[in-house]
Design a protein around this nucleic acid. Structure first.
Length: 283
DNA sequence: AGTGTCGCCTGAATGC
DNA sequence: TGCATTCAGGCGACAC
């Protein structure tokens, strides 16, 4: 399940492999994913990759012809990078294969097909429907305590849902929302507008911290893999509350039999994990 | 506008 | 064993 750290890790892998390489061919194995593949994808032969960047959870491959290839991994997508020495064995759900002049390949594999691959003009990206309304990058300068407080002001929606709203801040998915709220000792059910300034500041710091730690974990696993995919790296072993219903939270000193351990609730149709002691003031 | 719910899609896990 | 059901989740669409 790619969230921002996984997408960032994938971008770094792509950058290392593809910058200044020329596309040799584009193979499409179906009509599209969440949206149809644009016919222009097939006309990218001989186009050079200028740079690779990331906005929210979108991978942006900037091309020499003034276009940008926009990729999204949805929930189950992976970008597999095969170096020139790696053998590519096609597998189920390989929807798009980019072959490069040096023999490298990039494969977009996505069983659930919630991801996408489209093209846009590079100089019009800012106004593209995907990006127009996006909030600040959580690791960027514009994501601050005061800017977040302003966005949360008057909101009745639960803080967990608010930080997953891409208009508020991008890149915080279900896993890291729970993890950041735990680290900040904030009740995920709290109305967003009721957070005190100190709590908002703490939340900003913890969102940054948990994402950075996850990127570092992904980065460390990247070194060992010729094939880069969107896996969580080793960070999944560091979860404090996510997917730990009934277990101790990280650093717990409670009597689990008394507290019941990490609680799981549903918010917006999705699982939220939190510690009833440290995040809801019980016990 | 703000808020809440649903569906897209497949595969793993679970239930009977 | 096998079939049905549930769940996972980013994000857009839709209803109120």
């Amino acid at each position: 399940m790619p969230e921002l750290p996984e997408v960032e890790t994938v971008c770094r892998g792509l950058r290392k492999t593809l910058v200044d390489r020329k596309i040799k061919s584009v193979t499409l194995n179906r009509d599209g994913m969440r949206v149809p593949f644009p016919p222009a994808l097939k006309k990218l032969a001989h186009v050079k990759v200028k740079s690779v960047s990331r906005r929210a959870k979108y991978v942006l491959v900037h091309l020499g012809d003034g276009q940008t290839l926009i990729l999204h991994l949805g929930m189950s997508g992976r970008l597999l990078i095969f170096g020139k020495k790696d053998e590519y064995v096609p597998s189920k759900h390989d929807h798009m294969v980019l072959a490069f002049d040096d023999g490298a390949r990039v494969v977009l594999n996505d069983p659930r097909r919630f991801g996408l691959a489209v093209l846009a003009k590079t100089d019009e990206l800012e106004n593209h429907a995907f990006f127009r309304a996006l909030g600040p990058e959580p690791l960027g300068r514009n994501f601050t305590a005061s800017s977040l407080a302003e966005k949360l002001q008057g909101k009745k929606v639960a803080i967990k849902l608010a930080i997953m709203d891409q208009r508020v801040v991008v890149g915080v998915g279900n896993i890291y929302a729970s993890e950041a709220l735990f680290a900040a000792h904030i009740d995920p059910r709290a109305a967003a507008g009721t957070l005190q300034p100190a709590a908002v500041a703490k939340l900003v710091a913890e969102i940054r911290a948990v994402l950075k730690r996850a990127i570092a974990a992904g980065g460390s696993s990247l070194r060992d893999y010729v094939q880069t995919d969107g896996e969580l790296g080793y960070f999944q072993h560091q979860f404090a509350v996510y997917d730990r219903e009934g277990q101790k939270c990280k650093g717990c000193t409670c009597n689990i039999k008394k507290t019941g351990g990490v609680k799981r609730i549903t918010q917006g149709g999705r699982s939220t994990f939190y510690c009833p002691v440290r995040q809801a003031g019980l016990g």
